[in-house]
Nucleic acid binder design. Structure first.
Lengths: 145, 145
DNA sequence: AGTATATACGACTGAATCGGTCGCAGATAG
DNA sequence: CTATCTGCGACCGATTCAGTCGTATATACT
């Protein structure tokens, strides 16, 4: 397949929620989870990963929760996705050491890597603050032949 | 994660191989598989899917094999990938009926759908014949703010 | 101090998916 | 009529994923 995981999905939801409630109180994982009908423990896990990658700050204790560290305009969807799911690699052979590299006939790798970079560029260009904007009818990218 | 499956990978390899040997004899699944060190039965399975989506033509019997139907410049990587792995959907909630749609608070769907379309555009713009070209140092897409 | 409420972290489980194999049927060239 | 090839579906093992649970720890409020 080619879809992002549910956890990354939840991560985007959480970050967007935090962006909307920025500068207010810190939002707890349970608070966010309840609003979107997601398990509280699972949401906590997702937020922990985001905190571990310094996207959000965790505040312990009563009336604690999570808060955005960076500006919503400075956080890209790629940041969130890669924080939760790890690096985005379209080519599956990067992890297989020596297998694909051994067969040098496989000339499909390099062009795919370029496609991968294009996708990274798309994901990296969409910020969290843009997730709240009005949907433009135009496409997000223009293809360069 | 966010990578394409090995089968889609093999599919791209196979289509590229067929593109290079176009107008020659039909290539059997075993022939292609052996060249790249892939299981013959698995490659056959991949090619069957491609044939089912009218990307390649299957020729039965002795000295049979597969041949490209369309021009390599008319086949996009998206065609191959979606033929094997199904439609490319970045949002996992499209398949979950009623779950995400019920909670209308989830305002992250629509922007993600636009990102998805951008990715589709990237994949759809890269043709099989372009897989053989020289790697350009420039990116494949220009971001439009 | 003590309690309620949060996060932090890791182990665990059940389900789904994926990569890959096998066997058999049908078509075709020689 | 036989060898070779596709077509198809069932099948299996491994991996990954979504989600849960238990426990430790930090903080606010009383």
């Amino acid at each position: 397949m080619f879809k992002l995981s549910k956890k990354a999905d939840y991560g985007l939801i959480a970050v967007k929620h935090l962006a909307m409630h920025r500068e207010q109180h810190a939002c707890s994982a349970g608070e966010i989870a309840e609003e979107y009908g997601i398990s509280a423990t699972l949401m906590a896990k997702v937020l922990q990963k985001l905190a571990h990658h310094s996207l959000v700050a965790a505040k312990h204790g009563s009336s604690g929760g999570y808060q955005l560290i960076k500006d919503p305009g400075q956080i890209s969807t790629l940041d969130v996705i890669s924080a939760i799911d790890g690096p985005v690699l379209i080519t599956s052979c990067v992890t297989n050491h020596g297998n694909c590299d051994a067969t040098e006939k496989c000339s499909v790798r390099e062009p795919l890597r370029r496609v991968n970079e294009s996708i990274l560029e798309v994901l990296g260009s969409v910020t969290i603050s843009q997730l709240s904007e009005e949907p433009h009818e135009q496409a997000l990218v223009a293809l360069r032949t």
